[in-house]
Computed example of a mutant assay.
Amino acid sequence: MFNIMIIDDNEQLQNEIENVLINNRYSVTKVKEFNNIPELVRSSNPHLILLDINLPQDDGFKICTEIRSFSKIPVIFVTSRNTNIDELMGITLGGDDFITKPYNTQILLARISSLLKRAYPENKSMDIIEYNGLKLNILSSTIENNRNVVELTKNELKILHYLLNNKGKIVSRVDIMEYLWDSSLFVNDNTLTVNITRIRNKVEEIGISDFIKTKRGQGYII
């Protein structure tokens, strides 16, 4: 599954774009702190970036230039600035496309799909994630190990996928619940506990133990 990073300080717009992307089988990373975006890009390593120009600290042009110093990740400027000079600067400084707000959702999705196909022609499937013996199939909502296959519910799939996308990092319960809320899948604290327990049981069912670890007072880590 391709991961799209949204760099925009308009939270409502971020959430709207995120819902569209998730409904079209993308995973999403939303930037909430704007003081060191290039390092966040470096550590998160998304497959594509949607970048606004007007941001609280450095503008999108400077950020794109800094990203281009270490990465060829596709960048689409998505902005309300619509002059020819803005578009020319965006492309000249390393942007791959330029879309003005308000935009047509289907056109945005088509531009994203086109760029991903060009940037990752060798990719056969981003719908399968493998880690430490576990294979998560996004399309079939299943986990597998040594031909043992178990189905996941929608919430279980979202939670496990989120944890895998953040493997090696501690993910707080609040982060998981906010992620599910933004995906239109609301869970409360008790429901999250139940889902984590069920995921652990299903992972053990396919022969993998201690896959999701609890960090007391902090959250979970894979």
Score class of each variant (00 low, 15 high):
Met1His: 08
Asn3Val: 10
Met5His: 07
Glu11Ile: 12
Glu16Trp: 06
Asn19Glu: 11
Asn23Leu: 13
Tyr26Trp: 05
Val28Pro: 00
Val28Asp: 01
Thr29Leu: 08
Lys30Trp: 00
Phe34Glu: 01
Leu40Gly: 05
Val41Asp: 02
Asn45Ile: 11
Asn45Tyr: 10
Pro46Ala: 03
Ile49Asp: 00
Ile53Met: 08
Leu55Trp: 03
Cys64Gln: 00
Ser69Cys: 08
Ser71Thr: 01
Ser71His: 04
Pro74Cys: 06
Ile76Ser: 05
Gly90Val: 02
Leu93Trp: 02
Asp97Thr: 12
Tyr103Pro: 05
Ala110Ser: 15
Ser114Ala: 15
Leu115Asn: 06
Lys124Ile: 08
Ser125Trp: 07
Met126Phe: 07
Ile129Val: 10
Asn132Cys: 14
Asn132Asp: 14
Leu134Asn: 01
Lys135Cys: 06
Ile143Thr: 04
Glu144Met: 09
Glu144Gln: 14
Arg147Asn: 12
Val150Asn: 06
Glu151Ala: 11
Thr153Tyr: 05
Lys154Cys: 06
Asn155Glu: 14
Asn166Ser: 13
Gly168Leu: 09
Gly168Thr: 11
Ser172Val: 07
Arg173Gln: 15
Ile176Lys: 00
Glu178His: 13
Asp182Lys: 12
Asn190Gln: 15
Ile196Lys: 01
Thr197His: 14
Glu205Phe: 12
Gly217His: 14
